[in-house]
Amino acid sequence: MTKKAPNGRQDSVADFSFMLASSVHDMKNSLGMLLTTLDETMRDMPAKTPEQQQRFATLQYEASRINGELIQLLSLYRMNLQAMPIRVEENYVRDAIDDQLARNDMLFVSRHLNVNFNCDEDLLWYFDSDLVGGVLHNVLVNCARYTRSQLSIKAWLEDSGLFVQIEDDGQGYPEAMLSQPVDLGASVSFESGSTNLGLYFAQTVAQLHKAKDRKGSIALANGGDLGGGVFTLFLP
């Protein structure tokens, strides 16, 4: 028989969770300001040497990655409290993806990445643009780190659902991620510091999108047209 924790302890845990979430929120806002300032600095004072370019690229990537993870943590926290209702509306798919490409434009420039985007301008679908945008942002930031020079994004309708696919020309996903892409507990690596939070968030967001008896999903693969990692988001 499982014993219940005293009310005082439950209240303490709840208070700590709230304080932690508040701190994460403040850090997210500070990082957002840092990213804006960094973008402005990179535009006003472009790198003059390859070494400076590399430093800018590292700063841009790390700040974007941490900011994205903080947003994901806050979103998952609110989902756990059932305080974050999903807002499914009809959206132009191209606009939703364009927003994330524009958001990461300086990151792509600093890493000399060529981005190819293929999506019908009139393609419409129902989804929560903020949550789905967060998923795509995280994938694009990670691709910017691991790809060599090419990124490809495409979106299309098939089998009564929307598919969004992001490919890169990097080394591809590790085998462990392909076999258990969203097993949050099993995929923690203390050596690399990776928790696969982004993939867990992506799966959670995908599954919040439902149509009749179907749920959204994500899939990881290697190969594709560019020979690297392939991330696919499906929304029914």
Rank of each mutant, 00 (worst) to 15 (best):
residue 39 D to P: 00
residue 34 L to H: 05
residue 72 Q to Y: 00
residue 18 F to N: 02
residue 104 N to V: 12
residue 50 P to G: 13
residue 106 M to I: 09
residue 78 R to L: 01
residue 26 D to R: 14
residue 46 P to Y: 00
residue 80 N to R: 04
residue 15 D to M: 10
residue 46 P to G: 01
residue 70 L to G: 03
residue 85 P to L: 08
residue 60 Q to C: 15
residue 78 R to A: 08
residue 21 A to M: 02
residue 73 L to H: 06
residue 98 D to A: 02
residue 106 M to R: 07
residue 59 L to M: 10
residue 85 P to V: 05
residue 54 Q to E: 12
residue 98 D to G: 08
residue 21 A to P: 02
residue 17 S to C: 13
residue 76 L to V: 11
residue 68 G to K: 07
residue 52 Q to H: 10
residue 59 L to R: 10
residue 71 I to D: 03
residue 89 E to P: 01
residue 101 L to D: 08
residue 80 N to E: 12
residue 88 V to K: 03
residue 92 Y to F: 10
residue 27 M to K: 12
residue 16 F to V: 14
residue 65 R to K: 05
residue 42 M to Q: 11
residue 50 P to N: 12
residue 19 M to T: 06
residue 30 S to A: 12
residue 54 Q to P: 12
residue 74 L to W: 05
residue 72 Q to S: 09
residue 51 E to W: 04
residue 82 Q to G: 03
residue 69 E to D: 15
residue 23 S to Y: 01
residue 89 E to V: 06
residue 99 D to C: 05
residue 85 P to H: 07
residue 49 T to L: 04
residue 87 R to L: 04
residue 34 L to P: 02
residue 48 K to V: 15
residue 50 P to R: 15
residue 37 T to D: 15
residue 66 I to L: 15
residue 32 G to V: 07
residue 23 S to M: 13
residue 56 F to W: 14
residue 53 Q to E: 14
residue 22 S to V: 10
residue 88 V to H: 06
residue 38 L to A: 06
residue 74 L to N: 12
residue 72 Q to D: 05
residue 100 Q to R: 12
residue 18 F to I: 09
residue 93 V to D: 00
residue 55 R to A: 11
residue 82 Q to F: 04
residue 70 L to V: 09
residue 86 I to S: 13
residue 57 A to D: 00
residue 99 D to G: 08
residue 25 H to D: 09
residue 29 N to K: 09
residue 31 L to I: 13
residue 27 M to Q: 14
residue 38 L to F: 07
residue 99 D to S: 05
residue 66 I to M: 09
residue 98 D to V: 01
residue 72 Q to R: 01
residue 67 N to M: 13
residue 44 D to N: 14
residue 28 K to F: 02
residue 50 P to F: 06
residue 93 V to S: 04
residue 51 E to T: 08
residue 21 A to G: 08
residue 81 L to T: 09
residue 93 V to K: 00
residue 20 L to Q: 10
residue 34 L to M: 13
residue 73 L to R: 05
residue 66 I to G: 07
residue 28 K to Y: 00
residue 34 L to Y: 11
residue 77 Y to T: 13
residue 94 R to S: 14
residue 53 Q to Y: 08
residue 71 I to Y: 13
residue 28 K to R: 11
residue 67 N to I: 03
residue 89 E to S: 02
residue 100 Q to V: 04
residue 76 L to W: 03
residue 86 I to G: 10
residue 76 L to I: 01
residue 86 I to Y: 07
residue 36 T to L: 06
residue 77 Y to W: 03
